[in-house]
Each structure stands twice: as structure tokens, then as C-alpha cells.
Design a protein around this nucleic acid. Sequence first.
DNA 1: CTGAAAGCGCTTACAG
DNA 2: CTGAAAGCGCTTACAG
Lengths: 341, 341
Amino acid sequence: MQGRPTINDVAQAAGVSKSAVSYALSGRGRIGAETRERVLAVAAELGWQPSQQARGLSSSRTYAVGLVFARPAELIGADPFFAPFIAGVEAELSHHKYALLSQVIVGGEAEEEEGYRRLVSGGRVDGMILTDLRDFDPRIGLLRDLGMPYVAVGRPMQAIDGPAVSNDDSASVTSAVDHLADLGHQRIAQVSGSRALVHGLERERAFHRALAARGLYAGTVIPGDFTGQSGAEGMSALLGLSPRPTAVIFANGLMAIAGMQEAARQGVSVPADISVVALDDNPIAPFVTPALTAVHTDVLLWGSLSARTIMAWIEGESDTSDVTLTSELVVRGSTAPPPSP
Amino acid sequence: MQGRPTINDVAQAAGVSKSAVSYALSGRGRIGAETRERVLAVAAELGWQPSQQARGLSSSRTYAVGLVFARPAELIGADPFFAPFIAGVEAELSHHKYALLSQVIVGGEAEEEEGYRRLVSGGRVDGMILTDLRDFDPRIGLLRDLGMPYVAVGRPMQAIDGPAVSNDDSASVTSAVDHLADLGHQRIAQVSGSRALVHGLERERAFHRALAARGLYAGTVIPGDFTGQSGAEGMSALLGLSPRPTAVIFANGLMAIAGMQEAARQGVSVPADISVVALDDNPIAPFVTPALTAVHTDVLLWGSLSARTIMAWIEGESDTSDVTLTSELVVRGSTAPPPSP
DNA sequence: CTGAAAGCGCTTACAG
DNA sequence: CTGAAAGCGCTTACAG
């Protein structure tokens, strides 16, 4: 016996059959308590852990979940979502002996599709977690056709027969607008992220609803793409407007920080002349000058809930209903009352 | 035939044996060119992809590599290393049909060890990539005892019988010191990251060597821990010194940005009163005010080289020598000549 | 050049 | 309550 011990080694050492060892471990009855204890003791002594690979082959399972994450090169290191999200996913998966096959890809939709194909076609995973959901996302049809369980991170437009775990983007935007309106702002603009993503659209609609609810006129929306550059360009465009908005809501922290830099470059002071809020928080946000007011989401929890949901589907539990998280506005230094006219 | 097609389906459809299909795919000779083409055509038509699980079981391999990454909660979203590193790893692995099992953990050394145990003991991986190398890192002995191939990301202190893929930290520090010395700085300080990590020690030694080489007196080194808060505290401590340093080198971008905020809070201007350099770049660095001068490493490449190295060991190639990357100083707005006395 | 067979390390109905 | 056997989908010496 060299290398990892196998179930045969344990069976022999304990003087029982292979099946007895298997049943002892899974605890699926059919074995005496005394025998079971002995087998378990022997297994522990030999340091035996069942091969997930063999286990998977015979049970037609992999005990692994897949996650593909595609970003353009400029964003790959700047996105504060990925690491805590998979940390949350794994905290939950590891309790149930599941592993995560996460694929990070530099690129866009095409590269992402390729990543899916790789994970699914190699038979490596029992289910997939879908992030960056797009309207009428083709991946959903693909996975359904393959009979592969999935969970959508974000609520898609189309009706799907799978569960979604979403952040309440509408509430996030509303909290930002309300905060600014409470400070007295009347001209509020938005620099959005990608409109192709589900939550981009949702946020834009929520923006207009929230303004209307406060009796404010429709705000300008400048399209962006989550990069710092698009944040700076958005700010620049807004500063050229007349009358100029007194507050701007950016899709994420990177855009907001770049927007503040652009304002500084043009001699416009944040928050004295213009207030700034980000819809996604960033760990650097407290440390820039002024510290950035942002809507904060518990991304770790988001990951955990996604993991729990996909495992429930894989294990055939019927409890695969949708889950919604809510975010919280964190007021820091980049928002203040508008300048007096 | 429902679900994924198997090798049997292909064999039957092509009118050959299972082994013929297997040989056709692997191309390991022993099959006629004509037969081979026909088999491949049938496989493509049925959309057959060999199950990596079954393949692995019979060849005592998993075709997967593991990577564990542990960070305290404050840093998990702020670290610009992880995502591009695994993107680089995967770009390389996927060419060779390897998958990456990456485990992200919120926590420290203890939680990290547990992550290793999980990946290795479940027989999920053929090799491991070790990041955040510590002096005399216990993981190296552990993996050696298990006969598990590994690659060290960073060159460890102890002699190891495995390969290392390292950034030349000494050159990074030297380029930062030289840049500041060229600008005329004479009192240069450092706020370090964790001294427990290999590259922390290396950087501190290189700092003193580089100063000596320029004929400058030993600089103050304030210990930090990679968090923004420790960056702010480090800056605060340095501003209290008399005479005060005119330039500070921080271990990473987050610390440097927080340090600049602290300087601003105390009415000290960057770079007019004090220059700031970061030893690890951050995608936000160009967008803060002033834009942060930093030493930039090609993390994607680092990941690719690490992947290539671990695969070489797994495949039994003898070419597993060490690899060294060098970084490049990117001068932005946070460095300038020192104030006139 | 090709096929039949054993085996990788498990799980799980099926007999006793 | 427990064991012997088949089978998961591949790979790879071994015969022909």
C-alpha cells in the first residue's frame, strides 16, 4: 500500500467488505453501530478519504460546481466582486464536500461561452453558477438543453425554470437617490455600467422611478462600461452640461473614483460643488479623498446563498425558490448638500 | 442513449472497439489513419467529449491543479492579485485540458492549511500552486510527504526540491529607490507588508541595499499588514518623525492610497511635501488624486508561467527550473522632487 | 493494425 | 444485518 489508501485497504484492515466501508462512511443505514465505529476508526487511522473521482464516477456525479467569470483586461484586477463571491460560495460548498471549478477569463462574452463549454463538456461539474446575467441570456437555454442545474446570480428578464439569487438593485438605486434628495439635490445624474447586463437595465429604470417618487425631473444618464476611463468621461460630459447636475451616481467604485479625479482636474470640488455616490462599494472607497459614499452589498453572503441554492437543485430538493438580498448605503465623505445657487 | 454520449456510443456508431476510440483521440499511434479519421468524425458528430472523471480514474490522474488563497476579510476584495493570476493560470491550463480548483478563503494561515487538506485529501488535484510563501513554509514539507507536485510562487528561504516562479522583488524595490534618489530624495522610508511572507523580508533587505548603493543612510521601516488602515498608520508615524522623510515606499497600492489620504488629512501635500510609491500596482492607481506611482508586475504572465511549470512537473518533464519575472516602475503623479529645505 | 479484458476506486441494488 | 457482484466511463498492457 503506497500512495493514498483505498477503500480496499480499509476493508481489509477492518476485516469487512468494501460495501461495509462505503455504508459506514455514508451512514446510510444497513450496518451495525459497532461495526460502523470500528470501520470509521480504522479509516481515520489510515487517513483514508474516499476518492471524489471514483465516488463521482459510480454515482454519476462530480461533487463540483462551476463558475465562469469574464472581464476585460482593464477590469480583471479591479473588480471587488469576484474574490469575496467565490469565498462565500466555497465556504458553503466545502461543508458539503463540493469543490468549485472557477474559471476566470480575460475577455468578453465569446470567451465566456467557451469557458462554459469547457467545464460542461468535460463532465467536470454537477451544476453552474451564472454571473453577469444578460437579458435573454443564451446560457440559460444552453444549460437547460444539457440538463445541467444552474443558478442565476441576478434575476433575468426571460422566464426561467431555475432559481435566481439577486441583489435588489432597485432598492440600491432608490437609497442613493433618497440620500441625495434628502441633502437637497434636485439635479441628479447617473453614469451607468453596461446596459447589456440585467442589473444595468434594472438600475436605470429604478433611477427614473426613484426621481419621480421624489418629484424630481428626469435625470441625465450617461452610458459607461465599468472602467475608470468611462467614469472620467462620464463626469466630464456631465460637467459640460448647463445647468450642471449637483450629484452623480456611478455604477461602481472604480468609475466613481475616476470621476472624482476628473472633477478635481477641472477644478470642481467634491463634495462642495458636486456630490458622488457609487452603486457598488469598493474596499478602497474609505481611503480615497474624499472617502466615497457607496451602496454596500454583502457579497460573501451572496455567494453563500448562491451555493446553497445550486446544491439544493443538484440534490433534488424542491426548495429552490428565488432569494433576494438588500444592500445598504454607506455615507462617507463624497456627498454633501448642493452648493447654494 | 440519453445524457452525455459515452465512448461506447462512439465505438458502436463507428463500428470499432472502445480502445480504438480511445487511441484515436489520444493519437498515441496503434490505429490506422483512415479509421482514426472516421472515429473522430463520428465523435464530433455525437458531440462526444471524454469524461475527465473516468479518464482520471483509470489513469490515476485528475487533470486538475489546486490553488488556495487566504486573505483577511478587509483584503479579500481589494487584492488585485488573485483574479489576474488565476486568469493567467487558466489560460495556460485550459490549453492542456487541465482545470483549476481554486479555493478562496477568508482567514489566515490556519484556514489556508485546511483548504489544502480538503483539496489534496479528496484526491481532487494532480498538483498545487502555492502562493503567499512564508519562510520555512510548512506546506512544502506536507506536499512533499504526500508526493504531490507543487510550484512555489515566490522563492522560499529553505531549500526545496520543487520549482519556484518568482517576481524579482529586489529589483522592484531598487527601481523605486533609484527613481526617488534620482529626483533628489535623501530621506526615504518604507511601510512594509507582512514580514512573515518571503517577499516581505526580501523587500526589506533590498531596500537597505538599494539605499546603501546610492550612498543614502538607512531608511526607517514601519511594519504594516497590507491593509489600508496600516498604510494610514504608517504614514502618520512617519509624519511625526523629525526630520521627516520626503518619500515613502508602501508595500501595495491600497496602503499607499490610504497613506496619501492620511497625509491630506494632516495637511501634507503629495507629492509637493512628500512623495509616495507603491510596490504593487493597482488598477485604481491611475485614477486617484494624485495618480499613484507604482511598480507594476505582469500578473497574468506570472500565472501562465506558474501553470506551465506545475504541468511540466506533473507530466514528468525534467524541465522544471526556476523562473524569474521582473517588474517595471510606472511613474505617475505621486512622486516629485523633495521640497526645498 | 485492432479487439477483448482487466482495472482504476468507488456505490448500490441484489442476494443471502 | 452483511457480502459478492455489477457497473460508472475511461486507459492500457496484452493477445491475436
